[in-house]
Each structure stands twice: as C-alpha cells, then as structure tokens.
Amino acid sequence: MAEPDLLGRRLLFFTGKGGVGKSTVTAATALLAAERGKRVLVVEVDAKGNLTEQFEQGAVGFQPREVYPGVFAMVMRTEDSLKEYLKLNLRVPVLGRLGPLARVLDFVATAAPGVKEILTVGKVCWEVRESIEGRADWDLVVVDAAATGHIIGQLDAPRAIQELVAVGTVRTQTDWMVELLSDPALTALNIVATPEEMPVNETIELVERARAELQVPLGAVFVNRVLPELFTRSDEKTFEALRRPESGAVLTERAGPGATTVLEAARLAVSLRRTRATHLTRLRETVDLPMVYLPYLFVRDAGLRVTRMVAEAMAQELGL
C-alpha cells in the first residue's frame, strides 16, 4: 500500500529511467486525480510531447490547456518561464526595450548551467504556491520530471542556488521554494521503474542519493509493466509435462501444428517473468518505500485507453 493520500498532496514529481513509462504513469495519476474531482495541472518537463499523447491530444505549449476533463497540460519552456518570471517579479515593462538582454535570454535559458533547472522547478513551485494562496486553482500539480540521472540536479537547483547566492531577489525566492519542496504534506518525489536490471538499479541508487542529498520527500515506487505469473508451482509441473514430446503429439493432433509454438511462447513468458521477478525481489528488499504495482498491458498501442487502464490499476493498488 502506498502512502494513504498520495493524491492528497499538492505537488507530485515523477522520475524514472528512460523507457519505463514515466509519462504514462504521470498521465494516469493526473487522470485518476481528475476523476476523483481534483483540478490537475500536469507539467511535461522534457518537452518530447509524449504526455499529451497519453490523452490523445495534440501538442500543448507553455500555456496550460485542458486535455481531459479536469486535467490541464503544459510543456515547460525555460525561455517562457524566464520571461514570465521577469515580468512578474521585476515588473520589467517591455522586454524588447532591454535590447541585448532579450537576445541573451534564450542563451541564458538553455545554456547557462543550472538556469534551466531553476526555471523549471521555480515555475512548478510557483503554480503550487499560487494555488495554496488562492490566486490559482490547481488542487494538484503533477510533474513528468527529469529522468533518474537528472532529477537530483533538477530538484536540488533551488538549494544549490541558495548556497551560491546570499542576497537578492533570487535568494528570497529560493527560500520559499526549498520550504515548499521539502514539506512532506505538500510534495512527493515518486519513482517509476520496471522490474528490469537497470531501472531497479537506478531506483535503488536514486533513493539513496535522494535521502542523502535532497530534502524533497520520497513518495512511492511505481513498478510498471509487471508480467503476470502464469502458473502456480503445481500448475507448472503440469506445464512441464505438456512440453514433453508425447504430450506435444496429442496437442498437435487436437490443436494443429501450432500447438508446440503456443507452448514455446508460454515458456518464454514464464522465463521473462522469472528474470524480472529477481529484480522485483531485489527492489522490494532494498527500498523501503511503498510499492504500487502496475501490470504489463498486452494492448495494441499507447493512448487514452492505456492511460485509463493504468489509472484503474493504480486506483486499486492505492485503495482508492
């Protein structure tokens, strides 16, 4: 069982190794929260455009757009985030009049180290704070955040900047960001993994590093694409007996020449499941976070249907 009220928080980050289904799980969480009556902002950080596909919607921009009843999606663009920041905080009247500054904006936002991170996290935190203080109305902000290798740098950016900057507007602002990010009642960092070697390794490492280096509280581990267990132990003996040549002859007689192929496919399924099970065990034994298991879906393609299926599985696991 996961934390009693994962959805009761205000800010949920999702990270994970590439390819584990981070966007799908993020989208499913947003959908689930929306179906439970929340108004959700879902933020895609990597701007690959995967996220809105989960809702079968076209690309969105920096301005949130409703992609599903109650779910608003936006894509993080650091340049827009910087412009918005300057406009809001410094009341800089017209950017164009700053001349050369406007030209370096793009550069600052994309190339200067750390700036991208702080602009990303800053924007997300700002949306949450505005909502808490009643100037925006998101019940929940869900972030499809950086992959495991980058997430610490991303979420630690406010604190890193705090260490570097002693005074000034930025200092004051990183103060409240750090506070918001480290409040377990408001924020959680969730990790998506699949029961495979590298995703499990990265999850274990990330949990250790996050505890040592980050103040952001950890939420749950979402174990995605768990293959079904086909047989109980005694069923498996029967299965082994079916794979003997004499059984194969009977089966071929009854079910045609494809019978042994079907048995071979089942053997592959058992074998794949078994390899993954060892990683799952290792994950469970090493990481003491709540685990949310999501099944491997044998479906044609990604899309809203898959997002719904994942959300349903999640609801069951979370007891919602």
């Binding site: 079904p228 086909l230 047989f231 005694s234 069923d235 003996k237 029967t238 299965f239 082994e240 007996a241 079916l242 003997r244 004499e246 059984s247 192929t261 079907v262 048995l263 496919a265 089942a266 592959l268 399924a269 044998f298 479906v299 044609r300």
Partner: peptide, 28 residues
C-alpha cells in the same frame, strides 16, 4: 502414465492459460 496430467481440471486450466498467454504476446 503421466501423473502430472491426471488431474484434468488442472490440465485444462494450464492449457487455457497457455493459450491466453500466446494471444496476449501475439498482440504485442
């Protein structure tokens, strides 16, 4: 002579699972 196949209910269940699993993986 195959003791593992004497319980026909069990065998039937395993056969169903095997067939289902093939169909599932075939979709992918």
């Amino acid at each position: 002579d195959a003791a593992e196949l004497s319980d026909t209910a069990r065998t039937a269940r395993v056969l169903g699972t095997v067939g289902d699993s093939f169909r599932n993986f075939a979709v992918v």
